[in-house]
Design a protein around this nucleic acid. Structure first.
Lengths: 232, 232
DNA sequence: CGGTTATGATACAGACCTGTCTCTTCCGCC
DNA sequence: GGCGGAAGAGACAGGTCTGTATCATAACCG
């Protein structure tokens, strides 16, 4: 009755795919184990044989998203290597596109930390660690771009980034992406002095994306940063 | 056996005070009815005689916060009446102070919308309506300040505002408030042209604040925007 | 073909949470 | 002093959730 058309993925992968999509779309606390096993067509014991607990599954979900986010970051910055200022701008242009994506539901890490509020929760710790990593990478770019006060620019940009995540989900700021990219550009150019550099969206050769996502955006790369649903 | 020292507040108030503090500090879904009645020293039936359901209590909590937020906004802008540019800046200076407050736990509305994700939930609708109201008030200021593109500045500033809420809780951006106020000032001055106006923290006469909060900040007003815990 | 391993199906225990019911107690007020 | 309404205390029902146990079944491999 199921779809065993091609090759059936191992249970662990199916579980993680389903959990990722549901956790992201509907929230971690709102999605129960029973829903995950029903949607992934897996027995409950298969889940508990692969993951020690729901917390463990949540951590696996976040860890996979961390890897995907890092890959996205590298992909976006790779096309401006040697130009940290353009790299920063490109990140925010891509971020602006991502928050306009119909499936966008906020930052999975921010959401996870908000839902699993206990600081002792390993998922909470994971989310915070990821935010710190992003911050460090941003600061490295800010310093390399010659900002007057790299720490301040870093703080401002991360504020903007978190705001984009939060606002993109809850609010409906009309020209959303415009606001993100333009605000970032203004702050970056203001802090780095000199005339504005490239705007970060110069449409170079479009690298292909693994899974099948709707690729609109700049026409180049699927700007889905940490594609939090299993899709791809 | 309890503390009937002065005058015992009516049950409804005690419930709402306790619920507000717990909901804000620990999260709405994480705090059960039993915890609220235990901490407020109230019988369960007293709660359900005053509030139809937990959802109803959550709505009351949010509605009270909306009123407190509006009062805070008026208080901050009142001291720069006639100067919308300074009013905007003052709001972000105060916001920067608020997110540095030790009890700060993020925006109660953003948190509520994230925890109660069902769009049909009345609390979710309340939170979104509040965000729209804030946006309208911001846009009015942006237009009055003569911004090139008021809509764009509004979007940028609300992004920054949401970012401050999100980042202030999850991240620990070192000079947090500095980042908020300085980013806002940069965007506002950039959009409104001309030389920067007052920086929004000119220490006029400090209006008294109702409840007893720790008043540090600029030395003037308790910048606690929507004091979400019952305290204020 | 036989056996090992991974997986499916399902029932169940224990915890927690919301909301209701009943009974008692206390306080104000006439 | 007595009465009535509001509030405290606690049991209880019904639901949901996580995690465990049991048994049947399908794939895989020598």
């Amino acid at each position: 009755m199921a779809e065993t058309a091609t090759v059936r993925k191992p249970a662990r992968e199916r579980i993680l795919d389903t959990a990722a999509e549901l956790f992201y779309r509907e929230g971690i606390r709102a999605v129960g184990i029973d829903t995950i096993i029903a949607k992934s067509g897996v027995a409950k014991m298969s889940l508990y044989r692969n993951f020690a607990s729901k917390d463990d599954l949540v951590c696996a979900y976040l860890e996979r998203n961390i890897a995907q986010h890092a890959a996205w970051w590298d992909r976006v910055t790779a096309r401006h290597s040697g130009d940290p200022r353009a790299q920063m701008k490109a990140l925010f242009v891509a971020l602006g596109h991502w928050i306009d994506h119909p499936k966008f539901q906020g930052c999975p890490f921010t959401t996870a930390a908000a839902e699993l509020r206990d600081p002792a929760n390993p998922a909470h710790a994971l989310a915070l660690a990821h935010k710190r990593m992003v911050r460090d990478r941003l600061r490295a770019l800010a310093a390399a771009a010659g900002a007057d006060d790299p720490d301040r620019l870093t703080g401002q940009l991360q504020l903007l980034m978190e705001g984009a995540y939060a606002a993109g989900r809850a609010l409906d700021l009309g020209p959303g992406n415009g606001a993100v990219a333009s605000a970032a550009a203004a702050l970056i150019d203001g802090a780095c002095g000199g005339e504005p550099s490239a705007d970060g969206c110069p449409h170079p050769n479009p690298p292909p994306l693994g899974g099948g996502g709707d690729e609109r955006l700049c026409g180049r790369v699927a700007a889905v940063p940490p594609p939090p649903s299993g899709g791809g």
